[in-house]
Amino acid sequence: MHRVAVLAVPPVTGFELSVPDLVLGQARVAGAPAYEVVFCAVDPGPVPVLGGMGVTVPRGPDALAGARTVVVIGGADLGPPDPRVRTALTTAYASGARLVAPSCAGAFLLASAGLLDGRAAAIGAGLADRFRREYPGVVVTDRLFVAADDVYTCAGHAAAVDLCLHLVAADHGAAVAGALAGGLAVPPPRPADATLPAAPVPAVPDASLTGTREWALGRLAEPIRLTDLARHANTSVRTLTRRFRRETGLSPLRWLLARRIDAARRLLETTDLPVETVARRAGLGTADSLRAHFARELGRTPSAYRAGFRAA
Rank of each mutant, 00 (worst) to 15 (best):
Gly96Leu: 00
Leu24Cys: 11
Arg260Pro: 02
Thr87Glu: 15
Gly79Trp: 13
Arg254Thr: 14
Leu116Lys: 08
Ala94Cys: 04
Arg306Leu: 00
Asp228Ser: 13
Ala177Asn: 07
Leu273Gly: 01
Ala287Pro: 01
Arg242Cys: 07
Leu256Lys: 03
Arg300Thr: 15
Ala263Gln: 14
Arg266Phe: 13
Leu110Phe: 12
Ala185Ile: 12
Leu184Ala: 01
Val37Thr: 06
Val140Phe: 03
Ser112Ile: 03
Val29His: 09
Pro44His: 01
Val85His: 06
Thr141Tyr: 04
Phe145Ala: 14
Leu273Arg: 10
Ala304Gly: 15
Ala67Phe: 06
Ala101Asp: 01
Thr241Phe: 05
Pro202Ala: 15
Asp150Leu: 11
Gly182Asp: 09
Pro44Met: 02
Asp149Cys: 02
Val37Tyr: 02
Thr141Ala: 12
Asp272Cys: 08
Arg143Tyr: 12
Leu89Asp: 04
Gly283Lys: 00
Asp82Glu: 11
Gly182Thr: 08
Arg310Met: 07
Leu257Tyr: 06
Gly299Tyr: 11
Phe39Ala: 10
Arg133Tyr: 09
Arg259Met: 13
Gly183Pro: 07
Leu64His: 01
Thr212Trp: 02
Leu116Trp: 02
Ala34Arg: 01
Phe145Ile: 00
Val85Leu: 06
Leu167Thr: 06
Asp262Gln: 14
Leu229Lys: 09
Leu115His: 03
Ala233Trp: 12
Leu127Lys: 13
Asp149Met: 08
Ala148His: 08
Leu184Lys: 05
Ala128Leu: 08
Glu247Gly: 07
Gly60Phe: 04
Thr153Ser: 14
Leu64Cys: 05
